[in-house]
Structure formats: C-alpha cells, structure tokens
C-alpha cells in the first residue's frame, strides 16, 4: 500500500512537471510570435513610408529612375515575402535600395534641403531604429525559447511539438563589413 502511494505521488509530481513545462513552452512560443508581430508592424510602417519617399525624390530627381525603380521593386518584394529567412533577405534588399536614395540626395542639394524629404528621412531613420530594437527583442525571445526546449529533460516534453525557431537576420551590408584598419 505504501509503495503504491509513493509511486502515485511520484507520478503526480512528474505529471505536474510535464504540465508546467509544457505551459512554459507555450508561453515562450507565444512571446516569440508576439515579438514577430512587433517586427512586422515596424516593417509595414516602413513599407507605407516608401511611396511618399519615392514621390518626393521623383519631384527633385526625376532622372534617378533606376534608383527609384529599385526601391519600388524591393518594397514589392518585401511585401510579398513570407517569413523567416526570405523575409529577412527581402527587407535587407529594401534597406540597401533605400540607402541608394540617401546617395541620390547627396547629389541634389534642393532635395536634401526639402522639408518634406528631411521629415521623411527622419521618420525612416526612426523606423529603422525601431526595427533594429524589435529584431533584438525577437531574437532574444527566440534564443530563450530555443534554449528552453532544447535543454534536457525539457526535450522529453518538447518532443516534436515544439520546434526551434530561426533568428531574424537583418544586417545591412554596411553592418556586416569588417572595417579596414590601416596602420
């Protein structure tokens, strides 16, 4: 009888642990999804800003049609991209294309001095900072979630139901470039 009670108690403890661990995985996964929606919101805001920016630049630098077309195409590709690595690559291309506008602005002083262009560029810069911050939150959540489901004995509960998520990489080529140091 005593042995049965001990076994039942142990089983109850194991059951409780499984339930609590499972719930903690669900909470962590939900936080990953929530953080992803935070990135998505900021990226959509950037997509919404691009047409205004292109129109403004067109008014001052109509000859830069190649740069503007590249931005428009990159925006369309980013809006149509799925999620994960594809989305990251598409957004990275949009970032590069938008850098092209910054280069164009250097060649057109009237454009650079325009109030609406300055406002849009300030908004773009703020949005890019927000995207970076949202990405850091997302990646930190993914790391926390992945670690949680991959640690033993949590793996026993995770099984195939909880799978590791990918980080969201959105580093601009400029960020990745190793600075050349001359001595």
């Amino acid at each position: 009888m005593t042995v049965l009670l001990v076994v039942a108690g142990l089983l109850a403890l194991v059951g409780l642990w499984v339930v609590l661990t499972n719930n903690s995985f669900i909470r962590a996964r939900n936080k990953v999804d929530e953080a992803w929606s935070g990135i998505d919101i900021q990226l959509k805001r950037r997509h919404d800003l691009v047409p205004n920016l292109v129109d403004t630049v067109k008014g001052y630098a109509a000859h830069e049609s190649a740069t503007l077309a590249a931005v428009t195409q990159a925006r369309a590709a980013a809006m149509g991209a799925g999620s994960g690595a594809d989305r990251g690559a598409a957004e990275e291309r949009l970032t590069s294309a938008l850098d092209g506008i910054r280069v164009v602005a250097e060649q057109y002083p009237d454009l650079k001095a325009s109030q609406s262009f300055q406002t849009l560029m300030a908004q773009l810069s703020e949005l890019e900072d927000q995207i970076q911050a949202a990405r850091r939150i997302f990646n930190a959540n993914v790391n926390s979630y992945n670690t949680r489901i991959q640690l033993f004995p949590n793996t026993l509960v995770a099984g195939g139901k909880f799978t590791a998520r990918d980080l969201f990489q959105l580093d601009s080529p400029a960020e990745r470039a190793v600075p050349a140091v001359a001595f």
Binding site: K31, E34, A35, S37, I137, A140, N141, S144
Partner: peptide
C-alpha cells in the same frame, strides 16, 4: 492594478 506583460521575455 492589473499586471501586464510586454512582448520581450527579457523585459518581463
């Protein structure tokens, strides 16, 4: 008062 959690695990 009610408790609120934000999207960041680290913050929470």
């Amino acid at each position: 008062l009610s408790k609120v959690e934000l999207e960041s695990t680290e913050f929470n």
